[in-house]
Design a protein around this nucleic acid. Structure first.
Lengths: 147, 147
DNA sequence: AGCATAGTTGAGTATTTTTGTCAACAAAAC
DNA sequence: GTTTTGTTGACAAAAATACTCAACTATGCT
């Protein structure tokens, strides 16, 4: 029941983008360096995020990535769904998964998994990149004031 | 972010045990047949559950498994923790996982994962085997009354 | 005692998923 | 036209998952 690195890296990379978007386009190498990730792996994650309309990649010197929506309009849940698929504790509560499970119709536990999955999705959808930026700011201020 | 079959099978097998506990010891073969699972795989799951004190295995003819606590005292969360480990969206919010992540101290996303993991765990801890039994009964009555 | 029925346990294996890397390519700036 | 940067598909190593097998132990029955 773990998030894979895909989801975690994608959220961290997107947060990095949100934190540095005032500086214009953010190149892959900068994100990779700050977040300690592989540049090419980031490229693959951002390809999905670009197709989903969350980021935009600009080629050429001075190029890089930028968010296509305001950080307040991008939720953690959306990012995760893009790179990991539906937020579901079990496959059979997703539209396609349901078709392939013979037990789906009268499975007692399935109802539970569906309810919990929906609650989990709601939690993740309520948190936006802006919220995470605010947390990062708090964190920074706290470390300064404690000096 | 999926539950593995370990967790799902364990919950289904434990529910099967709860539903049939009035009939005395429930042999592995019966659970396997009803739930469509491999008997030997069930054996391995129940070995963990036995060590955790949730079930008891009785050998010999007429043997089988039985719950060691009342269904109302066994939560789905507990079952999952026994067979899958801590309920956590990311490894770094567990006690051991935290030690192995250099970023743990000042990671902004980690706080989010911790909060969501705790909420998820609470949800799963609130649901007991008895609750699932009640759902199964409802299901059965509904199918009878609709005839 | 001896046989049949069950659970116990450790080792091993096949499959799938995850987590990347590599190399060739495309576009844009200068 | 060269350099910088993103794009894309193919591929591969590693880890996790989902089992199976075989030998063993305990118990009840006749």
């Amino acid at each position: 029941m773990r998030l894979s690195t895909r989801g975690r890296y994608a959220v961290r990379a997107m947060l990095d983008l949100a934190l540095h978007q005032g500086e214009g386009l953010v190149p892959r190498a900068a994100i990779a360096r700050r977040q300690g990730l592989s540049p090419t792996y980031i490229a693959h994650l951002f390809r999905r995020l670009e197709r989903a309309g969350l980021v935009e990649g600009v080629k050429g010197p001075g190029g890089g990535y930028r968010l296509r929506r305001h950080p307040a309009e991008i939720s953690v849940g959306e990012i995760i769904r893009v790179v990991e698929g539906p937020i579901a504790l079990v496959h059979c509560v997703t539209p396609e998964g349901q078709k392939r499970c013979r037990r789906a119709a009268d499975c007692v536990t399935r109802g539970l998994w569906r309810e919990v999955s929906e609650a989990l999705a709601e939690m993740l959808d309520r948190v936006t990149l802006q919220d995470l930026c605010a947390r990062a700011e708090e964190r920074k201020e706290a470390s300064i004031s404690s000096m």
